[in-house]
Design a protein around this nucleic acid. Structure first.
Lengths: 139, 139
DNA sequence: TATTATTAGGGAAAACCTAACTAACTACAG
DNA sequence: CTGTAGTTAGTTAGGTTTTCCCTAATAATA
């Protein structure tokens, strides 16, 4: 039994490792190897909000507005976001993700998708049914 | 088929999420919520090396020796490492992990173990056999 | 003399802040 | 209806702390 557990551990470790490596590979592809965890978190927040202004992002993240200005300037230099003026109110700016910014924000999801593509190459439909059933049993 | 894929995606996402959350929980337990990714990487390197001196760690990580001194001072304040003088050569110091440092270095592994414990609560031996067989098919 | 680690004294970048400012919108007094 | 006074959105200026890196010089040991 201990041996079985060990094999399960190795298999799951492999699964998670592949996902992580793919995730890092995506960040490398994007040319941002030194991006910080905080920056990725901010990009994810912007992505989740969809349409977000400076004031709103400051509220959500509990930062001052100048902090957000500085953050967005950095992201703009990294070509991860751009500013779009609101047509109805000239004071307001929307923070928009570029393709690159979105790829970074969703790197984890893309990595998981790639992992699943890889599973599809070796597993048939019945296998997947069994796998899903087993995994759903757990949570 | 697309629906099945989607369920697989959700299940695997859940698996990885639980692992990540457990990992973060372990870091919180250790009282180091603001630890950086680089610091964790250094602790992992120290853990993997087993017996490592300042000069050696500087070589491995391609840093200067003062950088390592500074790093280790920080880790010592965080109670993650301690210095141990080499009995054969008074110039040499070994960098040793404390329990806390080791827990942080291995947080990912512990998280995976806890995940597997959790799976054991719901899956029987046959289930695990099937799961392992399926996962091993993929890689 | 050579080697190990430390100290002293730098620098850059991220991630935060307050105070003061500009531009643009809103409301209401005349 | 218009002018102005006040409000709001974002920026600029100037500051701090922390991490993470460096070179040069030094102390202790081999």
């Amino acid at each position: 039994m201990a041996e079985k557990l060990d094999r399960l551990l190795i298999s799951l470790d492999q699964l998670i490792r592949i996902r992580n490596e793919t995730s890092h590979a995506i960040l490398s592809e994007c040319g941002v190897p030194d991006i910080t965890v905080k920056q990725i978190t901010y990009l994810k927040t912007i992505d989740e909000q969809g349409e977000v202004t400076f004031t709103r992002l400051a509220e959500i993240t509990r930062n001052s507005k100048p902090t957000i200005t500085e953050l967005i300037n950095r992201f703009e230099n990294m070509e991860c976001v751009y500013r779009e003026r609101c047509p109805h109110d000239g004071r307001v700016l929307y923070i928009r993700l570029t393709d690159k910014g979105r790829r970074i924000a969703r790197a984890d999801n893309y990595a998981l998708s790639r992992l699943i593509e890889r599973m599809m190459e070796t597993l048939d439909e019945d296998d997947i049914d069994v796998l899903v059933t087993l995994l759903r049993k757990v949570w």
